[in-house]
Simulated assay, not measured.
Amino acid sequence: MGHGGDVVQELTVDHNEVKEYFGQLRTATDGKRRRELADLLTIELVRHSVAEEQYLYPAIRKHLDGGDRIADKEIADHSRVEELLKELEKLDPSGAEFVSRVDELRTEVLAHIKDEEENLFPALRHNCRQSELDHLGDSIRRAKKLSPTRPHPGSPSTPPANKLLAPGIGLVDRARDLVTGRGKGA
Rank of each mutant, 00 (worst) to 15 (best):
V18H: 12
Y55H: 08
Y55C: 03
I60Y: 01
G67T: 06
S131D: 05
D65L: 00
R182H: 13
G5A: 07
L105N: 05
R150F: 01
Y55W: 05
L136I: 01
K163V: 09
I113P: 11
A143Q: 01
Q54G: 15
L85R: 01
N119Q: 12
L84T: 02
A166D: 13
C128K: 00
G2S: 09
T149Q: 02
L11R: 03
L171N: 14
T42N: 03
E10F: 10
K163L: 10
G185Y: 09
I70Q: 14
K184S: 15
I75F: 05
S79N: 09
V109T: 00
P122I: 05
T158C: 08
E117W: 02
G5M: 07
D30N: 02
S79K: 13
D173A: 03
E83G: 10
A28L: 02
P159F: 08
E97G: 09
R26L: 09
E20K: 06
R33M: 15
A186K: 11
E118T: 06
G31A: 05
V99H: 14
R101C: 09
S131P: 06
D134M: 11
S139A: 12
K163T: 11
D6V: 04
E44C: 08
M1Q: 15
D14S: 00
L91P: 04
E118S: 11
I113R: 05
D115Q: 13
I70H: 04
D6R: 06
L85N: 01
N162E: 12
D177I: 06
G4Q: 05
G168W: 04
E36N: 15
E87A: 07
R61E: 08
R26H: 14
D6L: 01
L88M: 04
D92L: 05
H63N: 11
V102Q: 10
K114H: 10
G154W: 09
E82K: 13
G31W: 01
S139P: 02
Y57H: 08
E97A: 15
R69N: 07
P159M: 12
Q130H: 10
A71F: 03
T42F: 12
L84S: 10
L105H: 01
R80V: 11
T149M: 00
L110T: 07
F98H: 10
L110M: 12
N16S: 15
Q130D: 15
E10Y: 02
V172I: 06
P159T: 14
R129H: 15
I140F: 06
S139W: 13
L91I: 03
P156M: 06
E97D: 14
A28T: 07
M1V: 15
H15N: 10
C128R: 01
L41E: 13
E87F: 08
P160H: 02
R101N: 11
R129K: 07
A76N: 04
H3W: 11
V46F: 04
G4M: 10
D68Q: 15
A51R: 01
E132I: 07
S147A: 12
D173C: 00
E44A: 14
E10N: 07
A76D: 03
H15I: 07
G66I: 05
L136D: 00
P148A: 11
S79H: 09
D72A: 07
T180D: 08
R47T: 12
P153F: 07
T42A: 11
R35L: 11
G137I: 02
A111S: 04
I70D: 04
D77S: 13
A123F: 06
P58V: 10
K62A: 02
L146W: 07
K32G: 14
E87K: 00
A161D: 00
F121L: 03
K114E: 14
V18P: 01
